[in-house]
Simulated scan of single mutants.
Amino acid sequence: MDNRKFSKLRRWAREGIIYVLLALAVMWGVDYFRQPTLPASFSATPVQGIDGKTYDIAALSQDRPLLIYVWATWCSICRYTTPSVDKLAHKGGNVVSIAMRSGDDAKLARWVDKKQLIMPVINDANGALSQEWQVSVTPTLVIVSKAEVVSTTTGWTSYWGMKLRMWWAGV
């Protein structure tokens, strides 16, 4: 390889690294500004699922990290994220989901059955819980360990991205 080709290749590599770093900085910034501001007592509030069970966030996050997935049936990005979250739950992941403004319990239960979801679903029918937690974007993923928020992200996330975040929270 002659010097011109090597120089050109090196310049492309350098520019590629710069673009990747800029993209990561933008993604981090967007997550930072869209992250919810959860009240200090958020994990002490038990929530009831559409299955009738009560879920205690503090207790669920005590032994291993808990993924709280805030989503909506009407959210276009959630259509791609929800199957990944459900797969995580299906494979034994510690997951609780909160459906934001997605109808009453009966309507939401029909939707969940139609999609064959196994993850626990809490219905935030009027948006009161998400408003209290200051969640304004769907989907929002919050990872809680020992009743403390360790990670939040918004928007689409892959199955492996969730698994990595959960693993990192447990380290």
Results as ranks from 00 to 15, higher is better:
20 V>E: 00
19 Y>N: 05
146 K>F: 09
44 A>Q: 13
34 R>T: 13
92 G>Q: 07
169 A>C: 00
15 E>G: 10
5 K>W: 15
4 R>M: 14
155 G>Y: 10
119 M>W: 06
86 D>A: 13
30 V>Y: 15
159 Y>N: 02
56 D>C: 03
4 R>W: 14
142 V>F: 10
126 N>M: 09
134 Q>I: 06
29 G>W: 12
46 P>S: 05
86 D>N: 15
45 T>H: 09
42 F>D: 04
140 T>I: 09
25 A>M: 03
31 D>R: 08
54 T>S: 14
16 G>T: 00
59 A>K: 12
69 Y>E: 10
52 G>D: 09
165 R>A: 13
162 M>R: 04
68 I>V: 15
90 H>P: 05
124 D>T: 01
124 D>Y: 06
155 G>I: 03
21 L>F: 13
7 S>P: 04
36 P>W: 12
150 V>H: 08
48 Q>T: 15
13 A>G: 10
99 A>H: 11
50 I>R: 06
80 Y>T: 14
123 N>L: 01
52 G>I: 03
80 Y>Q: 13
111 W>C: 03
48 Q>G: 15
114 K>C: 02
152 T>K: 05
123 N>G: 05
116 Q>V: 00
14 R>H: 07
80 Y>C: 08
83 P>W: 03
150 V>I: 11
81 T>C: 09
92 G>H: 08
27 M>Q: 13
9 L>K: 08
24 L>N: 04
164 L>M: 07
62 Q>Y: 06
46 P>K: 01
71 W>P: 05
41 S>E: 14
159 Y>H: 05
119 M>R: 02
157 T>F: 08
106 A>V: 10
107 K>G: 11
163 K>D: 06
126 N>Y: 12
32 Y>F: 13
147 A>W: 04
62 Q>I: 00
153 T>L: 12
124 D>E: 01
124 D>V: 01
120 P>Y: 00
60 L>R: 06
44 A>K: 11
139 P>G: 11
165 R>C: 03
88 L>K: 10
142 V>K: 07
58 A>M: 03
2 D>W: 08
139 P>R: 08
163 K>C: 11
149 V>W: 07
61 S>G: 02
86 D>K: 12
48 Q>C: 12
58 A>N: 03
154 T>C: 09
27 M>L: 14
127 G>K: 03
161 G>C: 02
25 A>C: 04
123 N>K: 00
85 V>T: 15
167 W>V: 02
18 I>H: 03
96 V>L: 14
142 V>T: 14
154 T>Q: 13
56 D>F: 09
132 E>N: 12
19 Y>L: 14
83 P>L: 02
97 S>C: 08
161 G>I: 01
158 S>Q: 02
164 L>E: 03
13 A>R: 07
171 V>P: 08
169 A>G: 01
65 P>Y: 05
128 A>T: 10
154 T>R: 06
122 I>Q: 01
46 P>L: 03
161 G>W: 00
39 P>R: 05
98 I>S: 11
49 G>P: 14
166 M>Y: 05
35 Q>C: 08
60 L>N: 03
73 T>R: 04
109 A>Y: 01
156 W>Q: 10
88 L>V: 13
161 G>D: 01
119 M>I: 01
104 D>E: 09
100 M>Y: 12
8 K>C: 13
36 P>N: 07
107 K>Q: 14
134 Q>N: 13
45 T>N: 09
97 S>V: 04
79 R>D: 11
144 V>T: 06
37 T>H: 14
95 V>E: 07
86 D>E: 13
